[in-house]
Design a binder for these strands. Structure first.
Length: 437
DNA sequence: TGAAATGTTGGGGCG
DNA sequence: ACGCCCCAACATTTC
């Protein structure tokens, strides 16, 4: 027993960086040398059909990058593969674990997992010490004066901003303390040993030029312009710090800061109203009779609806794992309202394809488009794909890029007539919601 | 973080 | 000069 190394553990999850990392900072300040670990969770990975899933590759490369950096301190990341509880039991056999530090993870599955791990550790008299790191304000920090959660964005954002201005943004200089990592040499697995292979997709940079953020308000809605930060995937996996991003927003662009606020709004909603993962936030929207035509769904997935702006978006998604935000709204409105296909189908398709996929934001966005969400678009707000094109892609730059054949004879006729689909949608929603016709 | 239908206004053509 | 009509252009309402 005495040959076991005594360590504190930092458990990496959605915080795959060494700088400005709250839990890591506190772990490194403790009395024990710190062993960083990561678990490739078979409960999650076994559900991925695509063994070239780029998100697994992204996690792998981020960890690999961390491993390279901490080799300079003669340390290593311990990588485990399997069921988290089983992995932790093994870790407790291999090491004399004095404490476990980790950053809060808020999704329903993560909560349940962390409860199990916490009770396992506590039954071994090991403290499980957790920190806020992936958000500026957590689910219960920005609530109404009566303590209840907001369900409307605007008042939420007002309070979020006022707290931000009042309290400022802390930083945690974990990078400076890396000498307190445990000296240890552990083999780092290959991606293949984890059961995956490299994808063909490219990852966006973890750096966004200030220039883009400064022009964000004017250019963010134009998909033909490179006007968004594309930092979603980095916020998803914590390869950048939300605190550094919020500071950037304060300095450079209010409208960009607003998007960070939306992110936390939907995370807050998912926490307080977890039923949104199963059904509508507003229950009456569960009564809408979706058409759910599988052929039309497939045409939507494949970018073959005959609506150039819709097809361009879906092809961008299928090709790159990314879709411009304005176009996400257009394709979501089209699927739910023009085709009357259950928003959960679209949500699941986005979940399978988006590199920056985040459960709360994706669910919130889809429910917004379907009209079923909190603070949703009214049910009668139906995007006209042609009007959206006129407003946001008037020079057709985006459409030409992704649907080069759209002015040829080979480009298909619209899958549905806009006017008919609009009227059909209004009738179907009214019927489902029990309104007078 | 809409769009379409409907209503209103005012200029210009024309008898 | 005047009334009438047409119809943009804009505003308001409705979905």
């Amino acid at each position: 027993m005495e040959n076991k190394k005594s360590v504190a553990i930092h458990w990496f999850r959605r915080d795959l960086r060494l700088h400005d990392n709250n839990a890591l900072y506190h772990a490194l300040q403790g009395d024990n040398p710190v062993l960083p670990i990561f678990i490739f969770d078979s409960n999650i990975l076994d559900k991925l059909e695509n063994k070239k899933d780029a998100r697994v590759q992204f996690i792998y490369e981020s960890l690999s990058n961390i491993q390279q950096q901490i080799r300079k301190f003669n340390s290593s990341v311990l990588i485990k593969i399997g069921n988290p509880v089983e992995c932790w039991k093994n870790i407790l056999i291999e090491y004399d674990v004095k404490a476990v530090y980790t950053n809060h993870d808020y999704e329903p599955y993560a909560l349940q997992r962390d409860q199990e791990i916490e009770s396992l550790l506590n039954s071994n008299n090991i403290p499980f010490i957790t920190f806020k790191d992936q958000v500026i304000f957590e689910k219960s920090e920005v609530v109404k004066d009566d303590g209840k959660p907001y369900t409307v964005y605007t008042p939420y954002s007002r309070k979020w901003r006022s707290r931000l201005n009042a309290e400022g943004i802390p930083s945690y200089d974990s990078q400076l303390l890396l000498k307190n990592l445990v000296p240890i040499s552990i083999d780092f697995p290959t991606l293949e040993e984890i059961g995956f292979q490299k994808s063909d997709l490219l990852f966006p940079s973890d750096h966004c030029a200030d220039d883009i953020i400064q022009k964000y308000a004017d250019q963010r809605d134009i998909p033909g312009i490179n006007g968004t930060s594309r930092l979603g995937i980095h916020l998803r996996f914590g390869t950048i710090s939300i605190r550094e991003m919020a500071r950037k927003g304060q300095n450079l662009s209010d409208s960009w800061l607003n998007e960070l606020c939306w992110r936390e709004f939907y995370m807050m909603i998912l926490w307080h109203f977890p039923h949104v993962t199963k059904g509508s936030f507003k229950p009456q929207y569960d009564s809408i009779e979706w058409r759910n035509n599988e052929t039309e769904f497939q045409a939507w997935c494949d970018g073959k609806t005959g609506y150039p702006i819709v097809d361009a978006g879906m092809r961008e998604l299928n090709t790159t794992g990314y879709m411009h935000n304005r176009v996400r709204m257009v394709v979501a409105s089209f699927l739910t309202k023009h085709l009357l296909i259950d928003w959960r189908w679209g949500e699941a398709y986005f979940a399978s394809k988006l590199l920056d996929f985040d459960l709360s934001a994706n669910n919130g966005g889809w429910q917004w488009a379907a009209g079923s969400g909190c603070d949703a678009a009214p049910y009668f707000r139906i995007f006209n794909p042609y009007e959206q094109t006129k407003k946001f892609d008037s020079d057709l730059k985006y459409i030409r890029k992704w649907v080069p054949e759209f002015q040829d004879f080979s480009y298909p006729q619209p899958i549905v007539d806009h006017k008919m689909a609009r009227e059909r949608c209004l009738e179907t929603y009214k019927r489902g919601l029990g309104r007078d016709l």
